[in-house]
Design a protein around this nucleic acid. Structure first.
Lengths: 130, 130
DNA sequence: TATTGTTATACTCTATAACTATA
DNA sequence: TATAGTTATAGAGTATAACAATA
């Protein structure tokens, strides 16, 4: 399984690089749901990083027109991060590639793939925090 | 499966941090088999990084007494990297932790774990390069 | 002339600390 | 007084380029 992890990490980095994004920028882009703008503090939690780093990531992605800062109606300290239409399109395209199963998994029989899905679903359902 | 990847990556980083190693230093330590000293160029290939970076990683691990540079009998340009006894002990201990299955997998039934092992074995046997 | 490893250096990633505005 | 985000800055991680020794 660790072999799969390594190949996934390399694939993730290379998908990001082809889009001229750093891996963290890609991760941030994927963390923003199109239907719900998120406060920056929430994004820092999602990426397990400092808030100041979110500022710099958002700066870069905003400069490229992929997302934008919006005021929060309830609290004027908060800024909500929302995808632009371009950001939404790029996110969808990149996520499709990130979630594509690696060739080793795709080459399995349908029965194996289904069994794999079921086992992993059970694993994560029983221990959601792991 | 990607959720598992993320949790593994965090676990890997924290195992390295507890041993006061960077993640790449841990990866390098794991790449050196106790029974076979490896040339630095080979380690650069294994870590997908530049040779000059291997130099700096080896410097740090050598300073901690975990490995050592040895001349290569056949080619005097080459240096072979070998684990010291301390390095071998630390490697064994850390690898045991790295390969420990996450709790979500450990909590599965024995039948599920066996099925998972068999499926992944098939996947990697059929497509070794992926 | 090509290759292994090293050195010097620069660039990217990420966190810490001090700050501003708002609560 | 405490919190959300920003700015300035410092540190780690990693690559590139020039170099020395050997092939």
């Amino acid at each position: 399984m660790i072999q799969l992890f390594h190949s996934h990490r390399r694939a993730f980095s290379s998908i990001a690089a082809e889009a001229e994004l750093g891996p963290s920028q890609l991760q941030l882009l994927m963390s923003i749901k199109p239907e719900r703008a998120a406060p920056m503090s929430e994004l820092a939690d999602a990426l397990y990083c400092d808030a100041s780093y979110i500022t710099s990531l958002v700066d870069k992605l905003e400069a490229r027109g992929l997302l934008e800062r919006r005021p929060s109606p309830g609290d004027r300290r908060v800024k909500l991060i929302a995808l632009t239409p371009e950001g939404e399109a790029m996110r969808a395209q990149l996520m499709q590639r990130v979630f594509q199963p690696p060739s080793s998994i795709a080459a399995l029989s349908e029965a194996d793939r289904n069994a794999l899905r079921d086992i992993l679903t059970r694993a994560l359902a029983d221990a959601p925090a792991a």
